[in-house]
Design a protein around this nucleic acid. Structure first.
Lengths: 141, 141
DNA sequence: CTACAAGTTAGAGTGCGCTCTAAGTCAAGC
DNA sequence: GCTTGACTTAGAGCGCACTCTAACTTGTAG
């Protein structure tokens, strides 16, 4: 089965423009072309696209993703580098998750803070009255 | 205690340039000035800066962070909006964590994949030989 | 055969978040 | 009093990841 650029774009929730941009940047060397020059995406290409999507999620710049794809094309000589890349990414993702969890706690506190304020009709409720409750809440949340 | 822009920048791991940029964008209306126009950061400002840092971590654009800070300056009339903002952010963060956890699983698999390949000296090890082991591994990881 | 929808390219434009420069002012130590 | 280094501003520049345009070609339905 062969897919057009628009179909693939739809499948991955991006635009055809973006896919062409990725191709121009060297991220899609695996995509073949028809005689007239149109891109012919195959199912086996979806694995690559999913990997690009995955690495983008982790905040990796396109240049480094391209580098990884280039390494893949160079065979066993680059195995060590590719291994190191994923080890580094693993650490980075764990850090990102930790940072987000920390942010989530702060945001949860603010949710409670504003919920109570909205109920009271004023932010003043958090001046003296509920100092103890706030401290209490901070412990549990 | 009063802090210079350089001290605050150091404390938050950013540059003084960036702090001035945030000020120019309206993110630091709470920072007072000396008679000669120098910024005089106080300890109470650090809470605001920590909140900006927190929201930035969650990928919120500076314009929306500014909007929140503006709302804070408008008193109780904006309590509902601020509450909604943090509820929305809570959902967004949870989604981001989920996406990162999914990416982490893929990356972990690749770590294993390349570790084995490096040990074997070739990626071919993943062609036929270890198909079963790979399937097995995918279940546990 | 024609019309048109969808593909192609090169290259310009956009928005974001800095990042830096130039020219000038100010505060503290010698 | 003078030097030095840190501060101030306006504004230019940068890198990233798109995003769009113009001009053109191609494939398909009527």
């Amino acid at each position: 089965m062969i897919y057009t650029i628009a179909q693939v774009a739809g499948k991955f929730g991006i635009t055809a423009h973006t896919l062409r941009y990725y191709d121009k940047e060297g991220l899609l060397p695996f995509v073949e072309r028809s005689a007239s020059g149109r891109r012919r995406f195959k199912e086996e290409d979806f694995g690559w696209l999913a990997m690009i999507e995955c690495l983008k999620t982790t905040g990796m710049p396109l240049k480094r993703i391209k580098q990884y794809i280039d390494w893949c094309g160079k065979g066993d000589a680059t195995l060590q580098k590719r291994h190191e890349l994923f080890l580094e990414r693993k650490t980075a993702i764990k850090q990102q998750i930790k940072a987000l969890e920390k942010a989530l706690e702060k945001v949860k506190y603010k949710c409670w803070y504003y919920k109570t304020a909205v109920a009271a009709g004023t932010e003043k409720i958090h001046r003296q009255t509920l100092r103890k409750a706030a401290a209490e809440h901070r412990k549990t949340v």
